[in-house]
Simulated scan of single mutants.
Amino acid sequence: MTSLLSFTPSTPSLHLPTFSNVRHHHRLSPTTLLISYPHPLPRVQILYRAPHAPPRPSFSASALRAAADGLLQDAGATAFVLAGAYGLVLCFDNLTQRNLLQQSLSRKLVHILSGLLFMLSWPIFSTSTAARYFASVVPLVNCLRLLLHGLSIVTNEGLVKSVTREGNPKELLRGPLYYVLILILCALVFWRESPVGVVSLAMMCGGDGVADIMGRKFGSIKIPYNQKKSWAVELGRDG
């Protein structure tokens, strides 16, 4: 009874493997020490897996066909407008050489029709983002043409007579050159997305050209501070 009441719990002893026991049971070399851990060591991933490359966009056959059709449409429209612009200038050139039209009237008619017909040709281009660049090729070709003739690199008396006032090739580097630069600007910046380009071209081509024609015909009253202008053309340019 006394022994039962005086029970004292014994503390468990910690038995570590000694070198002699390890050598005796496992027959290891003297330089080998075996230590057991209660929990397994954590696994360390040494190799790094590279992230997957983003998938390449796949273009369907219908999308590629639509893009090709748009390029063909824009290229054909550019060729058509170029031929029309060249034919327009050639037509008035022939009329001027045959003395069927005065040089000043021919020049202003080309001034009016070139920009307006170019603007009216925009709907025949496609709806792609590259359409405006194809359209701007037309005034760009005319710009290069004016530079070549204005710098007297290439001579064309018919073009000079139908476009300039006094028949001087250097005049091509002023008004006519500014004219085609505005066409390029309106095509690239405004295109069919903003009415600003349409209004600007209408004012530059129609307003300015018609004001000159009407001023020369009906402008009899000169402006006191500028005798080269008349009242009928005060809203436009010189009469």
Rank of each mutant, 00 (worst) to 15 (best):
R65S: 10
L188D: 07
D93T: 15
D74P: 01
G115D: 04
H111M: 01
L4A: 14
F134G: 02
V141P: 00
P176L: 12
L172Y: 00
R49G: 03
V189P: 02
P38Y: 02
K217S: 07
A68T: 07
W231M: 05
G207C: 08
H111A: 00
I184H: 02
H26L: 15
F134Y: 14
H111D: 05
F59C: 06
V180P: 03
L34V: 13
T18S: 12
A63Q: 04
H39W: 06
P42V: 08
S36H: 13
Y37A: 10
C186T: 15
L47V: 09
A63F: 09
Y86C: 05
L105Y: 09
G76P: 05
V233E: 09
L177G: 03
T32W: 14
Q102W: 11
I213R: 06
T8H: 13
R43P: 10
S20A: 11
S104I: 05
L88Q: 10
K170G: 00
V160H: 02
V233H: 08
S3A: 14
V163T: 15
D69S: 14
L28N: 08
A67H: 07
I46A: 03
W231G: 03
P12D: 06
I46E: 03
E234F: 12
L117D: 04
G87P: 02
V189D: 02
Y48C: 02
M204F: 12
S194N: 10
M119T: 09
W231P: 00
C91L: 10
L144Q: 06
L100Y: 10
L88V: 09
S121G: 02
C205Y: 05
H15D: 09
C186Y: 06
T127N: 10
T96G: 10
D93H: 09
V22M: 06
H24D: 11
F218Q: 08
S13L: 15
T127D: 09
L151E: 00
C91N: 00
Q103R: 11
I221E: 01
C91H: 02
L120D: 07
L64I: 12
V137A: 11
T8A: 12
L148R: 05
G158R: 08
L33R: 15
Q102K: 04
A131H: 02
W191N: 03
W122K: 08
R216Q: 15
A135Q: 07
V154I: 13
L235A: 14
L105F: 09
E171K: 01
P123W: 11
S104T: 08
P139C: 03
A131S: 12
F19M: 02
G76D: 03
E193L: 13
M203Q: 12
L82M: 14
V22Y: 01
A131L: 03
L28R: 04
W231N: 00
V196G: 00
T8G: 00
P17R: 02
L140I: 04
S136D: 08
G115S: 07
A85F: 01
S152A: 00
L117A: 12
T31M: 04
Q73Y: 01
A79Q: 04
V138W: 01
L116E: 14
F92W: 11
V189Q: 09
G236E: 04
S114L: 07
K229V: 14
L151H: 01
Y133M: 03
I182H: 12
L117Q: 07
T11C: 13
V89T: 12
K222Y: 11
S104M: 07
V89Y: 06
C186V: 15
S136I: 08
S126I: 08
R98T: 14
A211H: 05
G70M: 11
I46Y: 08
